[in-house]
Nucleic acid binder design. Structure first.
Length: 264
DNA sequence: ACAGTCTCATTTGA
DNA sequence: TTCAAATGAGACTG
């Protein structure tokens, strides 16, 4: 019998195991003694400030909180399963190192009319907001004070679906905005790696930052996180159920990009 | 031994 | 000019 599983919370048990196994410093998304209190306060309303947890490292600045109760996260997940239409065919393909691949997940984009988001040779036009996506966007606005105009939906059908290391450093992203990541469905591990700690001969040794993204959680990636840190959602074969991730962004038009560009 | 995980190489075109 | 939202190979590990 795994001694960790006798703990009250399986989730924190998993955290401790993982840290022990890999000898890596791992951020604990929820401290055991704070967990019960958080869950019950979230249950009511987010009219009062959320219990944010700061995640910090050199050049990394994130905030993590539980935005939705377990029940509401469940409800929202089911609604999105009905509402969201994912891309198929060539819109579900990207180009990496000159080769085409189908993405190992499903993707959709929603937002204000006309907004477009591009990466790795794929160009995705925003569909109009659905009721549930608009509701979640509203909850994110109340929690952050920012109104996002676009969301990228990633659906991971099970632990074999994943996303590789990358940065969200596209030109069209407003640098003044954080990226707000909402998780629903299965909990999944999430990993940050510093750009100077990658490759054959890393210039520096910087520990990765790992966390588990719980259903109903909100992760804010603030500047300059996406300049220095790559992130990924690695495959986890033991995960058998789907996860939906919503990354809210602020996209600026071509004209606005001109304005933001340092003039000479 | 084996299955899951991790790290590195890839080398074209945006 | 830089460097990659992908996979696959080889190493590690419990």
């Amino acid at each position: 019998m795994d001694p960790f599983l006798t703990q009250a919370k399986k989730r924190s048990a998993h955290s401790m195991n993982w840290e022990k196994e890999h000898h890596w410093k791992k951020f604990k998304a929820c401290k055991e003694d704070e967990w019960e209190e958080e869950e019950s306060s979230i249950e009511e309303e987010f009219s009062h400030p959320l219990p944010w947890q700061k995640i910090e490292a050199e050049g990394l600045d994130c905030d993590y909180a539980l935005l939705f109760s377990k029940d509401e996260a469940d409800r929202l997940f089911n609604e999105l399963e009905e509402e969201v239409e994912y891309f198929t065919g060539e819109k579900a393909q990207i180009r990496v190192f000159g080769k085409h691949y189908s993405v190992p997940r499903k993707q959709a984009t929603y937002g204000d009319p006309g907004l477009m988001y591009s990466f790795s040779g794929v160009h995705l036009l925003a569909r109009p907001w659905t009721p549930t996506l608009d509701y979640i966007r509203d909850a994110v606005t109340k929690a952050t004070g920012r109104t996002f105009n676009f969301v990228l939906v990633n659906r991971y059908k099970d632990g074999s679906d994943h996303i590789g290391e990358h940065r969200d450093d596209e030109k069209e992203l407003d640098p003044g905005f954080p990226i707000a990541s909402v998780s629903l469905g299965a909990a999944r591990d999430f990993v940050f790696r510093h750009r100077e700690a990658r490759g054959r001969k890393p210039r520096r040794h910087i520990d990765p930052v790992k966390l588990e993204l719980a259903p109903g959680s909100l992760l804010l990636m603030n500047q300059p996180t996406n300049t220095y840190w790559y992130h990924s959602l690695p495959a986890r074969k033991r995960v058998l159920t789907p996860r939906i991730n919503l990354t809210f962004r602020c996209i600026v038009s071509q004209a606005q990009q001109q304005e933001l560009r340092p003039s000479q």
